[in-house]
Design a protein around this nucleic acid. Structure first.
Length: 497
RNA sequence: GGGCCCGUAGCUCAGUCGGUAGAGCAGGCGGCUCUUAACCGCAAGGUCAGGGGUUCGAAUCCCCUCGGGCCCGCCA
């Protein structure tokens, strides 16, 4: 499959390149100046009636040759670039008997070519370029996937993403959309006077979440280092330092399994906003998603789920109370009044297998995941969580045992998480230690320097964090995280492959 | 970690009571000057993921390995 070197198709393509070369032409030339996007050709064809060419105008286009339809002494070649596709019309009349024959004998689907010619609308009404010359810009030695179905094998689509992209407009558009969404996200936050920062990815102790870190080694420090699992503690240090409004979009790494909504390597957005609380953050996040939904719809007009995003993400989003919603959906009364043993048994009934000594909130989370989460299709803010599973959030100003926290859900999964940030250093230290005493120390590391930072005074603030991949998935209606990560983690091919 | 499923030509896919491995696309040769997955004809293209076993005979049945998919569990 990959070992294309043995295929006669490769041999034939090499021979074509060699033939081209022996005719004094370069199959891999250095440039092709003056090309315009194919969209410009379509625009140039706007005023032309069927069968008419604009002889006064000469255009150059470049891109990948997708399909050749030969008719003896004329041929149609479909050329594709980032802006779309355009049909080339090549005839003996313009190219000459010899030139025409030489050209077609050297071209294959998949080749990168450049064409020079005149805008033409065919008798059938197709915008085209009637070419005076076509040159190879890069001979493709490997054959592209089948022209109609493209690359279907999910494994190959991940391992050779370039083939997926070059053969699937849909895939190219989806990944382009991801970039446009992140660009717009930055524009939104920049417009609100947030500062984008970059913090360390390689750190002495990964903290800010409870995931298993990747471990590495520094030759310089001669010490074990870890890859960050969250941005939170670094960004809050910046609030201490006076940056007031900061955000980061960056890779985080969690040494855990992957599924449709988790990947070991993923991008996170986190933002921190001084002198604001989680209610302010709700409005900000709502506005952000509403604005991004417009971008998604525009970027992926052919994808129904993306087209419907602006409607789905139209503010105001639904708001529900964490405990209240869970009690309502599960039919379980007085959750906060239940003992840990009762909650553990309830969690068991929904198939959860968490350690017996987990905090009560952990069992409630399992119930929430089972009874509530799958039903949260429309964007919904879930408010006010048990304190024992949220050590970085400030206790609720009026509801004992809870913290000021919301999570945003849509399409049945979590999109983001926000708190009114805990800024009391002594309480923070106590909460950390409480967390540590309960369970798996190897899952949680005490960042003493962070507590030290809080001692210098962090303004009251709110923070939000959410995965970029899930954001893209939700806005574009993509169901697997691998479809929004260009190069997801894959196993090395076995040596034999 | 558990369960189920998948791996056949460069690509997309057929092919189970076990009996010489098929099609379409792409590629080759020939024909065709307005096609749209162009069309028509001819010829070619295979370590059936890899290894082992059962059998007179294995793509097909069994076991192992590799890779992948889906579901569940785990991941505050």
């Amino acid at each position: 499959m990959v070992d294309a070197d043995d295929s006669h198709l490769v041999t034939e393509r090499r021979q074509k390149a060699a033939r081209y070369r022996s005719a004094g032409k370069e199959p891999y030339p250095w440039d092709f100046p003056g090309r315009v996007p194919t969209s410009e050709v379509r625009a140039a064809c706007q005023g032309l009636s069927n069968g008419a060419a604009d002889e006064a105008r000469t255009l150059k286009v470049a891109g990948r040759l997708k399909i050749v339809r030969q008719h003896g002494k004329s041929a149609f070649l479909d050329l594709e670039d980032r802006s779309g596709a355009i049909q080339l019309f090549a005839r003996v009349d313009e190219l000459g008997e010899e030139g025409y024959a030489d050209l077609l004998s050297v071209l294959d689907p998949g080749d990168i070519i450049g064409a020079t010619g005149h805008p033409l609308v065919t008798r059938r009404g197709e915008p085209s370029v009637r070419v005076d010359s076509v040159v190879l810009l890069a001979k493709a030695i490997a054959p592209p996937p089948e022209k109609f179905h493209g690359l279907q094998d999910p494994e190959e689509r991940l391992r050779r993403r370039y083939v997926d992209l070059l053969s699937s407009r849909e895939s190219l558009a989806r990944f382009t959309a991801r970039t446009l969404l992140v660009r717009e996200l930055r524009a939104y936050l920049d417009g609100l006077d947030f500062l984008e920062v970059e913090t360390a990815t390689i750190v002495p102790v990964a903290s800010g979440a409870a995931a298993q870190p990747f471990v590495t080694h520094s030759n310089y420090l001669n010490a074990e280092l870890q890859l960050r699992i969250a941005l939170e503690l670094a960004l809050k240090r910046l609030l201490v330092g006076g940056m007031e409004r900061v955000y980061e979009v960056g890779r985080c790494f969690r040494n855990e399994d992957l599924d449709t909504t988790h990947s070991p390597e993923f991008s996170m957005l986190e933002l921190y906003w001084a002198y604001a609380d989680y209610s302010d953050m709700r409005r900000l996040v709502e506005g952000m998603f509403a604005r991004l939904a417009e971008v998604a719809a525009k970027a992926l007009p052919d994808l129904p789920a993306a087209r419907e995003a602006p409607e789905l993400f139209r503010p105001p989003f639904a708001t529900v109370d964490y405990v209240g919603e869970l009690e309502k959906r599960s039919g379980i009364a007085d959750l906060l009044g239940r003992s840990r043993e009762e909650l553990r048994e309830l969690a068991r009934t929904v198939g959860a297998t968490v350690p017996d000594d987990s905090p009560k909130g952990k069992f409630m989370d399992k119930l929430f995941e089972h009874y509530v989460e799958p039903h949260l299709i429309r964007p919904t803010f879930v408010l006010d969580f048990p304190a024992d599973t949220t050590p970085l959030a400030k206790r609720h100003r009026s509801r004992p045992g809870l913290v000021e926290r919301f999570e945003l859900f849509a399409r049945g999964y979590e999109l983001g998480n926000a708190y009114t940030e805990l800024n009391d250093p002594d309480e923070q230290e106590a909460r950390f230690k409480e967390q540590l005493s309960g369970r798996g120390e190897d899952h949680y590391a005490l960042d003493t320097d962070f507590i030290e930072a809080l001692r210098y005074g962090m303004p009251p603030a709110t923070g939000y964090g959410g995965g970029i991949e899930r954001l893209v998935m939700a806005l574009c209606g993509v169901s697997s995280i691998k479809d929004v990560i260009l190069f997801p983690p894959v196993r090395a091919r076995s040596p034999k492959a």
